[in-house]
């Protein structure tokens, strides 16, 4: 297949013969466009319509947006999403750095324990939520049996503080293993010569951790942090199954509020407007991610070799 030589052709060398054409990209592109790009445009359009699930959506101008601006639950949901996300990052980051650096050691017992730490990752979010809902059951759960520690009536999900604590804890239980793996891999790739040099200078364990390990993990902290932020902002299964957004609307985070508006109140227009807010926030974060990691560079490090 012949292609006009462009200015970029000196990169990655070689003649233009035998290169795949546009047709190779077509099936995936059409498929992706149909189920991701078209709906993305659709959600923007539908945020200016009114639709109850029957008939066709009808334009209603800025009605949905005006409704949302005056909606206390919506504003609260943004704040709650941010709070849960920040709590997740603040708790999981130090925890997974410590566990990951620890697990990076070559000792045999560490390998065994790391394999066990991995177990929560084998469960789906739905399964994790159902499991913890059962574990925290007010009548038959752990808080009831250990009333001495947990106090009260054993219903941890009965108050806003309790429900937020539970969501944060369950999120940490579910996702810390993933971030631990990231840090374990990164900690193993720190050049040993750095530690040897520090030991000659008489540095202790703490000094080595703060002066060598932590600075070397910088990039991983960024990657893992972004994953936590995106994951936190799009949390849905856990809230639906564990708290149903409650008590009241006390844990109604933005994705859950979107679900309630669209699929329980059948106000798909307002639901779409909330969804669009989510898209904008998530895209902004992801753009930063793409920039920060250089994923948007078309050619890899091998370019020009």
């Amino acid at each position: 297949m012949k292609r006009p030589t462009t200015g970029r052709s000196r990169h990655s060398g070689g003649p233009n013969v035998g290169r795949p054409g546009f047709a190779w990209a077509l099936p995936a592109t059409v498929f992706f466009a149909l189920f991701a790009i078209v709906p993305l445009i659709g959600v923007a359009v539908m945020s200016f319509t009114s639709w109850s699930g029957l008939g066709s959506p009808e334009f209603n101008g800025l009605d949905n947006w005006n409704k949302l601006l005056g909606d206390k639950v919506m504003m609260q949901s943004l704040w709650l999403s941010a709070l849960l996300t920040v709590l997740g990052v603040v708790i999981q980051t130090p925890l997974s750095i410590l566990l990951g650096v620890w697990a990076a050691g070559q000792q045999k017992n560490r390998a065994v324990l790391s394999a066990i730490y991995f177990i929560p990752l084998l469960l789906s979010s739905a399964a994790v939520s159902v499991l913890w809902r059962a574990l925290l059951d007010p009548n038959f759960g752990i808080p009831g049996q250990l009333a001495g520690i947990f106090g009260g009536d054993g219903n941890l999900l009965g108050s806003q503080a309790g429900a937020i604590a539970v969501l944060t804890f369950v999120g940490a239980w579910q996702f810390t293993p993933l971030h631990t793996l990231l840090y374990q891999g990164a900690a193993r790739s720190v050049p040993p010569v750095l530690y040897q040099a520090a030991e000659i200078d008489g540095a202790g364990t703490m000094r080595k951790f703060f002066s060598i390990t932590l600075p070397q993990l910088r990039n991983t902290i960024v990657t893992s942090g972004i994953l936590m932020v995106v994951g936190g902002l799009t949390t849905f299964d856990t809230v639906l199954i564990l708290t149903k957004g409650g008590p009241g609307t006390d844990t109604t985070i933005t994705p859950y509020y979107m679900y309630r508006k669209a699929f329980q109140s059948f106000d798909f227009g307002v639901g779409s407007a909330i969804a669009l807010v989510l898209v904008v926030i998530a895209t902004a974060i992801s753009l930063i991610m793409v920039r920060a990691t250089g994923y948007d560079k078309m050619n890899s490090a091998q370019e020009g070799i």
Binding site: A25, A28, T29, F32, L34, F35, A36, I37, V38, P39, L40, G42, V43, M46, W51, P57, V230, L233, T234, F236, P255, M258, Y259, A262, F263, F268, G271, S272, A275, L276, L278, V279, A282, T283, I285, S286, L287, M289, V290, Y295, D296, M298
Partner: peptide, 23 residues
């Protein structure tokens, strides 16, 4: 196309679930 796919990394499923339901 590749850039568009990368941007797709940012689209959470919840965000487009209403139009997907419609489609």
């Amino acid at each position: 196309i590749f850039r568009t796919f990368l941007l797709g990394l940012a689209i959470p499923a919840q965000a487009v679930i209403v139009p997907i339901f419609y489609l």
